[in-house]
C-alpha cells in the first residue's frame, strides 16, 4: 500500500491525526510535511523518492499556502494525478470552491470530536488507499520504506 503525505502545520492536529491513523493501523504509511515548502520539496526535490498514494492537505500553511501546494501538485508531470484530500478547519464557501477549482479530489472539514475525527481518517484511508483504484504510475521508482521510516520517527 502506498504511503500518505500529511501536510499539517499545527502540532496538536498532527498528533491527533497520527493518533487517529494509529487507531486505524495506518501510521507506518504516513509522511508529515509541516509547511507548504516542505511538502513541495518532498514531492519534487528528490526524483528518486516514491510518490504518496494520498495527500492530506491543510489549507492555512506557513510559507507556501495549501492552495499553492495543490496547484504545484496538479502542474507537476509526475504528481498531477495523485489524489489530494483537503483536510482543514474552514468550511467557508470560498475555500471549498477554491479547493475543488484547484483540482482537489475531496474536501473534508476536520470534525471537532475526536471519535468523529478518527472515523473520518479511517474512511479516507480505506477509500483512497484500498477501495479506489489508484491512478497509473507516471514514472519514478516504486515506493520505498524511507518515507514511512521518517514519519515513524516523529
Amino acid at each position: 500500500m502506498k504511503h500518505i503525505l500529511l501536510v499539517e502545520d499545527n502540532p496538536d492536529d498532527e498528533a491527533l491525526t497520527l493518533r487517529a491513523l494509529t487507531k486505524n493501523n495506518m501510521l507506518n504509511d504516513v509522511t508529515v510535511a509541516r509547511d507548504g515548502a516542505e511538502a513541495i520539496r518532498l514531492l519534487f526535490a528528490d526524483h528518486g523518492a516514491a510518490l504518496p498514494g494520498l495527500i492530506l492537505l491543510d489549507l492555512s500553511l506557513p510559507k507556501v499556502d495549501g492552495l499553492d501546494v495543490l496547484n504545484r501538485i496538479r502542474a507537476g508531470e509526475r504528481t498531477r494525478l495523485i489524489p489530494v484530500v483537503i483536510l482543514t478547519t474552514s468550511k467557508e464557501q470560498e475555500d471549498v470552491l477554491a479547493g475543488y477549482s484547484g483540482g482537489a479530489n475531496a474536501y473534508v472539514r476536520k470534525p471537532l470530536k475526536f471519535a468523529d475525527f478518527t472515523e473520518a481518517m479511517n474512511v479516507l484511508g480505506m477509500f483512497w488507499l484500498l477501495l479506489s483504484e489508484p491512478p497509473p504510475d507516471l514514472g519514478g521508482p516504486s515506493l520505498t520504506d524511507g518515507a514511512s521510516t521518517m514519519a515513524a520517527k516523529d
Partner: peptide, 11 residues
C-alpha cells in the same frame, strides 16, 4: 475565527 479558534478546541 473559523480556522484558528477551532483548532485549539479540536485539541
Amino acid at each position: 475565527v473559523s480556522h484558528d479558534l477551532r483548532a485549539p478546541l479540536r485539541a
